[in-house]
Simulated scan of single mutants.
Amino acid sequence: MDSSRRQFLGSIGQVTIGAAASIAGANSADAASGSATDATNATGPHWGMVIDLRKCIGCQACTVACIMENDVPEDALRTNVSVYEVVKEGRDPAMVMLPRLCNHCDEPPCIPVCPVGATYKKEGTGEVLVDASVCVGCAYCVQACPYDARFINHETQTADKCTFCVHRTEAGLLPACVETCVGGARIFGDLNDPESTVSRLLAENDVSVLRPEMHTAPNVYYIQLDEALDGRVAGEAAYRPMVTDAPESHGESV
């Protein structure tokens, strides 16, 4: 999280996320149904993403593509690849990539804290979206998100985040980050279709999610996620859209 976002959140630090973060829900690798919002449709697509960390090379093509596709404002990111240095006893330090974005949870804690109903789950396909025409910019949802995946857009003064490129998927296209991933690490598809690539990957691999203790039933899954990182959502992205005078750290020891 950059300094401007930390300052903004500090100004509304009175808000607590305890109640929202404790919402219970299904927490299994195929949790594509059972949302309290009943937003999924068993007969239609329910979008999800699998990130194969064996293939991510940290090139940040996804980050740049997202910025260009969605006109993300300067000093903000909808998705990024955090870089960590993992040190384990008896092994050499290893640099580990962790692509991060909104998890489009089936039990999203960002929805119940919104005082005006601006954050909602799209019926049928399950994306968690923000109606900017309703949002008042209070940032309650920013604090409630356990994945640090939201920010206040300083140009619109409303909450902003990854949308799974809903404008593209509605037109039959892939999200921009998936289409531009040079290593094929990001795989997007229908979790309701047992023959889809994402469903097969979930069935054939041991997958993990970030912050499993939050019971949000996320729809973003990771293959070969280091156990040291399953609770990590903070960290410097290797790509920064705003140039600064001083060099910034590209990683963080865990």
Rank of each mutant, 00 (worst) to 15 (best):
Y239N: 05
L210D: 03
D75I: 01
G189D: 10
D148L: 07
L191V: 02
N70C: 01
A19M: 13
L77C: 05
Q143E: 11
G183M: 06
Y222R: 01
C114G: 06
E195P: 03
L173N: 14
R186I: 10
H104L: 01
F151E: 03
V96W: 00
A20C: 02
T156L: 06
T16K: 12
P175S: 01
V233C: 03
C177L: 01
A149M: 01
T163L: 05
E155Q: 15
S22Y: 05
T119W: 04
D2H: 15
D190C: 06
A176C: 08
V83K: 12
C56R: 04
P93F: 08
V233G: 05
Y120F: 14
A26I: 12
S11N: 09
M49A: 10
D106E: 12
V64N: 06
S4R: 15
V254Y: 12
A94M: 13
V209G: 01
C165N: 03
F151H: 08
D38S: 14
I12E: 04
P241D: 08
M214N: 09
Y84W: 00
S4I: 13
N27L: 03
E195Q: 13
G231K: 07
G126E: 09
V207M: 09
D206S: 11
V136I: 15
R78M: 10
G124F: 04
D160S: 11
S133K: 15
L173I: 05
A238C: 07
C138D: 08
A132G: 14
A149T: 04
S28T: 15
E195D: 15
G184C: 05
D131M: 03
C62D: 08
L174T: 08
C135F: 12
S33A: 13
A19F: 14
Y140D: 13
K88W: 01
G231C: 02
A234Q: 06
L225H: 11
A26D: 15
S133T: 14
C62R: 08
T158H: 06
C135M: 06
P247E: 09
Y140W: 13
L173C: 02
Y221I: 00
L98A: 01
C66N: 02
V134M: 11
A234I: 04
V182D: 08
V86W: 06
A246W: 07
E252K: 08
A185W: 09
G58K: 04
L98F: 05
T119M: 10
R200T: 13
I23F: 11
F151K: 06
L9F: 02
A21F: 02
E213L: 03
H46G: 10
V86F: 07
Y120N: 02
A29K: 15
R168T: 00
Y120G: 01
V116P: 02
L53E: 13
A61T: 00
K121M: 11
N70A: 09
Y222Q: 02
V166W: 09
L174S: 11
V233S: 07
M68N: 14
F188I: 03
Q7L: 12
T37R: 09
Y140K: 14
P109V: 08
P218F: 06
R100T: 13
F8W: 11
C66K: 06
E89P: 07
S28I: 12
S208K: 15
E213H: 11
D52T: 02
R200G: 09
Q143F: 14
R186V: 04
A19I: 12
G251K: 05
R211P: 02
A176I: 02
I223E: 02
V207D: 10
V86L: 13
I111C: 01
A217C: 06
T79N: 12
R54Y: 03
M68Y: 10
A39K: 06
C59S: 15
T63A: 10
